[in-house]
Amino acid sequence: MLDNLDRLDDHFVSPRNAGVLLQANAVGSFGTLRWGDSVKLMLRIDRRTNRVDRAQFQAFGCSAAIAAASATTEMLSGKKLDDAAAISAADIADYLGGLPAERMYCAVMSYEALQRAIVAYRGGTVLQKTDATPSCKCLGVSQMMIERTIRFNRLTSMEQVTQHTKAAGSCSSCFKQIEGLLARVNAEMVEDGLIEKRDAYQLGSTPQRALDLKPRGEPQPGTNIFSAKIAPAHLRATPRPEPARAAPTATTTLELDAPTQATLIAEALDELRPHLKRDGGDCELVSIEGNIVYVRLSGNCVGCQLSSVTLSGVQAKLADKIGRPLRVVPVS
């Protein structure tokens, strides 16, 4: 029997059911590059029995995000759709033998992707307008997502809300709004008998010093990690062949001078580094030689089983920034 840590590591090192499911008839995604992690669940549901015949996933993020998505696909196998819909984020975490408190959002992420897949299969609307309105603008976390996570997981502190949703984890701009949301939902949960009154969050319970230590930031535009422009190569759909085009003439080809290209590459890496640092890794620019960019991975990125995923993401980011493909090579 694997202990808790071994089970989590096992699903990360040897993820089950990873890859694209071409015959999927239910697909749900959650997360963005701005959020820091993303998962896409693809289900093949037998319409005669209403059971999940097969489940596969694609994920971009930390080891816990990959492990949670892997575990979710195993939990779904053979389940009736109603039973699959009843799987909670806590169930996913329990299946892995538990998750570190600061990684609980990974189970929530797979739960959200699962719910979107099921709603899409049943022909419903995945996101209502109110659900798309972000309460945490830095990370693009919606009010409805925060509220249902509080209810389903019976959260009673701002720290727990951040651990499960990342909301208010980047800066202090949205803290007061989310604090008010937590207090309101907890009061409703007390009325419904879900929590004790003594456990409900009260406005002002978080020390002001903890709030003062948070930076104030401006929100960055969100990006779908599975979009063609930003997704690593292994996450992109196979492009359809395009009709032959005439070769571009010298007057239509834009060539960047070396200093400009170097500046754009440095800017692209600076935009990616906060996401890597959030999971204990980093990626630094070493040198540029023509179309080859040499980088140095450090921290948790060194020796990581998915370092190739990180490099693919860096390569896609640079190509998007420069406007043409570049090769990214790691150096020690």
Score class of each variant (00 low, 15 high):
Ser170His: 04
Ser170Gly: 01
Ser170Ile: 00
Ser170Trp: 00
Ser172Leu: 06
Ser173Pro: 00
Cys174Ser: 12
Cys174Phe: 02
Phe175Val: 03
Lys176His: 06
Lys176Arg: 10
Lys176Thr: 06
Lys176Phe: 07
Gln177Val: 04
Gln177Ala: 12
Ile178Asp: 02
Glu179Ala: 04
Glu179Cys: 04
Gly180Gln: 06
Leu182Cys: 03
Leu182Thr: 02
Leu182Trp: 01
Ala183Ile: 01
Ala183Phe: 02
Arg184Ser: 06
Val185Asn: 00
Asn186Ile: 04
Asn186Trp: 02
Ala187Cys: 03
Ala187Val: 01
Glu188Asp: 13
Glu188Val: 01
Glu188Cys: 05
Met189Asp: 03
Val190Cys: 03
Glu191Lys: 07
Gly193Cys: 06
Gly193Val: 07
Gly193Ile: 06
Leu194Glu: 09
Ile195Asn: 02
Glu196Trp: 01
Lys197Gly: 00
Arg198Ser: 15
Arg198Met: 09
Arg198Tyr: 06
Asp199Phe: 11
Asp199Trp: 05
Ala200Tyr: 04
Tyr201Val: 05
Gln202Leu: 11
Gly204Val: 05
Thr206Gln: 07
Pro207Arg: 09
Pro207Glu: 11
Arg209Trp: 08
Arg209Gln: 13
Arg209Ser: 13
Ala210Gly: 02
Leu211Gln: 09
Lys214Gln: 12
Lys214Arg: 11
Pro215Leu: 08
Pro215Ser: 09
Pro215Gly: 09
Arg216Tyr: 04
Gly217Arg: 09
Glu218Asn: 02
Glu218Phe: 01
Glu218Trp: 00
Pro219Ile: 01
Pro219Ser: 06
Gln220Thr: 10
Gly222Ala: 11
Thr223Trp: 13
Thr223Ile: 14
Asn224Gly: 06
Asn224Ile: 03
Phe226Asp: 07
Phe226Glu: 04
Ile230Trp: 14
Ile230His: 08
Ala231His: 10
Ala231Met: 11
Pro232Arg: 06
His234Trp: 08
Leu235Lys: 07
Leu235Gly: 07
Leu235Ala: 15
Leu235Pro: 03
Ala237Lys: 12
Ala237Gln: 14
Ala237Met: 11
Thr238Phe: 12
Pro239Leu: 14
Arg240Ser: 15
Pro241Lys: 15
Glu242Ile: 10
Glu242Leu: 13
Pro243Ser: 13
Pro243Thr: 13
Arg245Cys: 13
Arg245Phe: 09
Ala246Pro: 03
Ala246Ile: 09
Ala247Asp: 12
Ala247Ile: 13
Pro248Arg: 12
Pro248His: 08
Pro248Gly: 09
Pro248Glu: 07
Pro248Cys: 10
Thr249Asn: 07
Ala250Leu: 15
Thr251Ser: 11
Thr251Gln: 09
Thr251Phe: 12
Thr252Ser: 15
Thr253His: 08
Leu254Asp: 07
Leu254His: 14
Leu254Met: 13
Glu255Ala: 14
